[in-house]
Amino acid sequence: MATGTWREWTADDASEWLSAPSADDDKYRRGVLGVITGSPDFPGAAVLGVEAAHRTGVGMVRFTGPRAVRQAVLAARPETVGVPGRVQAWLLGSGMDTDHRSFLLAGDLQHALASGEPTVLDAGGLDLVGSHTAPTVITPHARELARLLNDRDIDATVEEVEADPAGWAARAAEELRVAVLLKGAVTHVCDPDGTRLTVTASTHWLASAGTGDVLGGIVGALAATHHERLATHATAITYLAATAAFVHSEAARRASEAWEGGPVTAMDVAHAIPPVIGRLLRGEARSPRP
Rank of each mutant, 00 (worst) to 15 (best):
A2Y: 11
W9R: 06
D13P: 07
D13I: 11
E16G: 12
D25S: 07
L33N: 03
L33A: 08
I36T: 03
G49Q: 06
V50I: 06
H54S: 01
G57H: 06
V61K: 04
T64F: 01
A76N: 05
E79I: 10
V81T: 11
R86W: 15
Q88W: 05
L91G: 05
G95I: 14
G107V: 08
Q110C: 07
S115W: 05
E117S: 13
G125P: 01
V129E: 02
S131A: 12
H132Q: 15
P140V: 12
D151M: 09
R152G: 09
R152E: 14
V158S: 00
D164I: 11
W168T: 02
A169W: 00
A169F: 01
A173I: 03
E175T: 15
R177F: 13
D193Q: 10
G194S: 08
T211F: 09
T211W: 05
G212D: 03
V214I: 14
A224P: 03
T225N: 04
E228A: 12
L230H: 04
Y239C: 02
F246N: 00
V247F: 06
S249P: 10
A251L: 09
R254F: 08
S256Y: 10
T265P: 00
V269E: 03
A270S: 14
R279A: 15
R279C: 10
L280K: 03
R289P: 00
P290C: 08
